[in-house]
Nucleic acid binder design. Structure first.
Length: 322
DNA sequence: AATGCGGGGCG
DNA sequence: CGCCCAGCATT
């Protein structure tokens, strides 16, 4: 059976990861939120810093939001950090700090969707429910040669049904860990290690290399360009920053007031920043403080260091251009 | 069903 | 350069 092959592969090849050595739902929750759309290598140091700074859900709930977002800085998708903090406060306030213990309750938490709820419910509470992430979609679509669009709910439902069948005869937590690890290490998006694959004999897409085109994605990613203009005001050793509040990129983080100035003291070299679906052209202008008509708060460089900022702003300041 | 949300790494 | 990563919320 496929699932037993993958599980025994997992038991021999699994990486040692800190969130695998605990059944504390709080730690597992933190790790799963961090790992949404994020590689293990990138998320690992953030997880270590979070659990060191906030050993319990009470510590996280008591922290100021800016501090949580400062810890999140550089990881992206900042609504994850805001939701993490909000949900910690909610659980402390309404559940005495006790993490909910069923899939149905867990999925009602902010920032927790079907994948994350299944992961927490199976890892922390051994609930029998498949956690289906990008790895699992890829692994199953290849093994069973499912060529319908992976980005369609119908196809994903089909894969869910298969995963529910596979998980029914094995340890659910081990199964979920094994499927994801197998996708991350063996059945990789590019150049999968088919020659040493324990599932090769079952894999319907191996004989004619159909796996090269699986999973099949119907939609293409399109990159849009966007220009940002920043006005830098300095009064002595203080700079004017404002917190982004609208529903836009970098919500809740601090940056300079936006806008193209009429006059300016100096223009800095334009920075180009590549994001997933966007290319940012960023212009910085040093402006005359007497012309300042923008909202914001004045901060010293030492204070700015403690504020959560977008990567581009942090890079700019770190280069000591101002 | 479609779109927006970051940043990093890889071929 | 395009694609993908232990996805989710909003519309």
């Amino acid at each position: 059976m496929v699932q037993n092959r993958i599980i025994s592969w997992y038991l021999q090849n699994k990486r040692s990861l800190p969130w695998r050595n605990t059944e504390n739902p709080y730690f597992i929750w933190i790790s799963e939120i961090i790992l949404q759309q994020t590689r293990v290598a990138q998320g690992l140091p953030y997880f270590e810093r979070f659990v060191a700074q906030y050993p319990t859900i009470f510590d996280l709930a008591a922290a100021p939001e800016d501090e949580v977002l400062r810890l999140w800085q550089g990881l992206g998708y900042y609504s994850r950090g805001r939701n993490l903090h909000q949900t910690a406060k909610y659980i402390v306030e309404h559940h005495k700090g006790v993490f909910p213990n069923s899939y149905q309750e867990i999925i009602s938490l902010k920032g927790v969707g079907p994948y994350t709820a299944a992961a927490i419910a199976s890892f922390a509470f051994k609930e029998r429910i498949p956690a289906i992430d990008g790895n699992v979609l890829r692994v199953i679509s290849r093994i069973l040669r499912i060529e319908s669009p992976i980005d369609s709910p119908v196809t994903q439902k089909e894969i869910r049904n298969i995963a529910e069948e596979w998980i029914s005869t094995v340890e659910p937590d081990t199964f979920n860990q094994a499927m994801m690890e197998f996708g991350a290490i063996q059945c990789t998006p590019k150049a999968p290690l088919c020659e040493t694959c324990p599932v090769q004999v079952y894999c319907l897409s191996y004989p004619d290399k159909a796996y090269l085109n699986l999973p099949f994605k119907a939609k293409k990613t399109k990159i849009q360009e966007r220009e940002l203009y920043y006005k830098i005001y300095r009064k002595g050793n203080q700079y004017l920053l404002k917190q982004r509040k609208n529903s836009d990129i970098w919500k809740s983080l601090y940056d300079f007031p936006e806008g193209k100035p009429e006059t300016y003291l100096k223009e800095y070299p334009t920075a180009t920043h590549l994001l997933s679906h966007r290319k940012l052209q960023i212009h910085f202008y040093a402006c005359e403080p007497s012309e300042q008509a923008d909202e914001g708060t004045w901060f010293t460089l030492d204070e700015i260091e403690e504020l959560p900022k977008p990567k581009v702003i942090d890079d700019f300041i770190r280069k000591k251009l101002i």
